[in-house]
Simulated scan of single mutants.
Amino acid sequence: MLDLTGYVTDGGLETDLIFHHGVDLPEFAAFPLLDDPDGRALLRAYYDGYARVAAEAGAGLLLESPTWRANTDWGALVGYDQAALDRVNTAAVQFLREIANEWRDRVPHVLVVGMVGPRGDGYLASDAEPSEAAAYHLPQVRSLADGGADLITAYTLTGIGEAAGVALAAREVGLPVGIGFTVETDGRLPDGTPLADAIAAVDAVCPPTHYAVNCAHPTHIEPGLADAPTQLQRIAVVRANASQLSHAELDEADELDDGDPVALAAAVTRLRDRLPGLRVIGGCCGTDVRHIAAMWGLSA
């Protein structure tokens, strides 16, 4: 079992870059920044901010690669063929490894995570079969492993089959894996599956090391925690949205809703009380270093 006791991870990378730094991210893809010196400098400053939170909190640090969109379908839309994707996924992990090495004397423990995202839209239900999803995600997972990732985490998954497929791909390359689901305002997956049932179904195919919930406000996650404690104690990571808007409302929003960092931190604390296995706390859409610092009892 991978030890994930007390780790800081980052916030909403893409929304932070777009709304706070004026960066154009076609298709919401951050990974092309790795191919530009200014983009690398911006990413470095971004990750350093969260490393400082971890150092001040005395917590571990998860450095998660900016590769949520770096798969075949999304990559093609921003001009990356498979060879270019293999290169940039590997380079993303190596980039984070350099940052990790520079923070090791100030942070108790650092892990470098290869991040995988959904093949389709992170807000729409996926009906992929496990074998199909495993074959699709395997090239990215292998490239992240080649870069030296300590583990793989898939975020914003919306279906059981795709989640199981990512777990199968990670098993093939021999890396631990976290499976991250997103939920709607009722605490269920976009297709209506209860969170605990989704965990049980993936475990029946290929149990990951742990589970995550991301891209939902804590008040949307809470309704999904009403029962099935055996399954829910498998949730080790929460990366919450700042906004209480639904996914449909967020899709239509022209301005960033970054909520209230203190109120968000209080809501995350309530989740801690419901999730005995929770070890990693960070953010998703609308969050930045202010929100994560507040979650760890600090000021940014």
Rank of each mutant, 00 (worst) to 15 (best):
A265T: 05
G159N: 07
V110I: 13
A55E: 14
V141K: 11
V268N: 05
E98L: 02
A59S: 13
A59H: 13
A51S: 07
R274D: 05
H21N: 14
L195F: 01
P130S: 06
D191F: 10
E14R: 06
R52E: 09
I292H: 02
A83D: 06
Y47H: 15
P194S: 06
L4R: 01
M115T: 12
D35H: 06
A267P: 00
T209L: 09
Y50M: 04
Y50H: 02
P190F: 04
G297T: 07
A57Y: 00
D81N: 05
G75T: 08
T287K: 01
L138R: 15
P32T: 10
V238M: 11
V205C: 02
D36T: 03
V116F: 02
H217T: 13
V173I: 15
A57R: 05
Y50T: 03
D73N: 07
I281T: 12
G161M: 11
D105Q: 14
G297S: 11
D197P: 09
N241V: 05
R44M: 04
P108T: 08
G75M: 11
G12M: 04
H247R: 09
E27W: 00
T72R: 15
G192V: 02
S126D: 05
G12I: 01
L250K: 03
L157P: 02
T219W: 10
R234V: 13
L151M: 15
P207K: 12
H137L: 09
R87F: 01
V166I: 15
I99C: 09
G180A: 04
V53Y: 04
A45S: 06
V202Y: 00
S65M: 02
A55L: 10
T9C: 11
D48R: 15
L275W: 00
Q94C: 12
I99E: 13
A149S: 13
R274I: 10
P32F: 05
R142W: 01
R239N: 13
V110T: 14
T9M: 07
G117C: 06
L43I: 03
E14T: 08
H210R: 11
L62M: 04
V205M: 04
I199L: 09
A167V: 03
T287I: 03
G161Y: 06
L232T: 12
D186G: 06
G159R: 12
A91H: 06
A267E: 04
D150S: 08
D260N: 14
W68V: 05
A54E: 02
A201T: 10
V289G: 08
D73Y: 05
A212E: 11
A228M: 12
D48E: 14
S246A: 14
E184C: 13
E162K: 10
I152S: 09
R274A: 14
P190T: 07
A236V: 10
A91I: 03
T209Q: 13
I152C: 12
E162C: 11
T158K: 12
T269R: 15
F19I: 02
H109Y: 07
G297A: 08
L124V: 15
A57T: 03
L225I: 10
G283I: 05
D197W: 00
L264W: 01
G58L: 07
T67N: 01
A300T: 14
G224D: 07
S246V: 11
